[in-house]
């Protein structure tokens, strides 16, 4: 299968890339790792007139801790994040998710920003960003703006990104107290999309109560979902098995799974309940060790 013809541009600066997008708008499409976009081109689901390859732009794949945040460049690859000690220390949910994305070969090319901008509801990163309270930095020729992950996803393959904008960085606030997180994914086999995925982030206060709980859900709605009712029930609560079980029930009640080849809606809802409970317990273990 061949992609349809396109005009290929490989700018070597972000400014140049943004200028190309400003000129072409909807006619242009940005190429990061290509592990979602190239299959879409081959299947002719996408046929941009201009393909803007971001791969020659230096400095967009960094990982650094600064100003109480973990900052990850949009072009950081999944395998790079899976191997990063800084990500493991500052964001265990991201560290747990990275090695579960697709397969090892896809992880050598696929990028965090590409996955988020693609906005597949079965994509793993969106749930992690929602759970961790991440802010996404969107750049255009006209400037920059920051959008919370909870407001970035708008529906199936739909985000807050304007056609003239690029996602350049994610900023994950570093927890102030003991914290933990994880990502649990049910898949039929390596490389399959998630049947269900659950990202959890938990932060404790000085008294050992829950200061903040973040829960993101994969593949159980038109986009990565925030389990808002579960998060609110946990805030300020004691981190008990009962509280975690109730959070699981609330998350399962609030999601919108569809029956498909990967399982019935009822089954997926049940997995959400179990994975939220287990994920919170695992996050608590990590937090108490930290």
């Amino acid at each position: 299968m061949y992609p349809p013809p396109f005009d290929y541009q490989a700018p070597d600066s972000l400014e140049e890339a943004l200028a190309i997008l400003a000129e072409h708008g909807y006619e242009a499409k940005a190429l990061a790792g290509g592990q979602s976009l190239i299959p879409l081109l081959k299947l002719r689901f996408a046929a941009p007139a201009v393909l803007v390859d971001l791969g020659r732009i230096p400095g967009l794949d960094g990982v650094e801790a600064a100003d109480g945040e973990l900052r990850i460049g949009a072009l950081a690859r999944h395998n790079q994040l899976a191997a990063s000690p800084l990500v493991a220390e500052r964001c265990p949910a991201a560290s747990a998710a990275a090695p579960q994305i697709a397969d090892p070969l896809v992880r050598n090319l696929g990028t965090l920003g590409g996955s988020l901008a693609h906005a597949d509801p079965a994509g793993d990163w969106g749930s992690v960003m929602i759970a961790c309270g991440a802010q996404l930095v969107l750049a255009s020729a006209g400037g920059r703006r920051t959008v919370p992950a909870t407001e970035f996803f708008r529906g199936v393959f739909d985000t807050a990104l304007e056609p003239t904008e690029l996602l350049t960085e994610v900023r994950i606030p570093s927890p102030r107290g003991p914290a933990g997180g994880t990502y649990l994914k049910l898949e039929r086999k390596v490389g399959d999309f998630a049947t269900v995925g659950v990202a959890v982030s938990l932060e404790l206060d000085g008294a050992g109560r829950i200061a903040r709980a973040g829960i993101g859900l994969t593949a159980v709605g038109p986009q990565n979902l925030r389990a808002a009712a579960a998060e609110e029930a946990l805030a300020g609560a004691e981190p008990t098995a009962e509280a975690f079980a109730e959070a699981g029930r609330l998350a399962a009640g609030g999601c919108e799974p569809a029956s498909d080849v990967r399982g019935s809606a009822e089954y997926k809802r049940h997995v959400v309940e179990v994975y939220v409970r287990r994920g919170l317990a695992r996050a608590l273990e990590i937090a108490r060790r930290s």
């Binding site: 299968m1 992609p3 290929y8 490989a10 190429l31 290509g34 592990q35 190239i38 299959p39 081959k42 390859d53 791969g55 397969d103 090892p104 070969l105 896809v106 050598n108 090319l109 490389g191």
Partner: peptide
Amino acid sequence: CDTTGCGACTVLLDGAPIKSCTLLAVQAD
């Protein structure tokens, strides 16, 4: 498979294994 699933097209790009059905030749320039 030609759809990023099977790995029959695996090559090493700067030493790392990747699926060559899911990379443009121009990206390997």
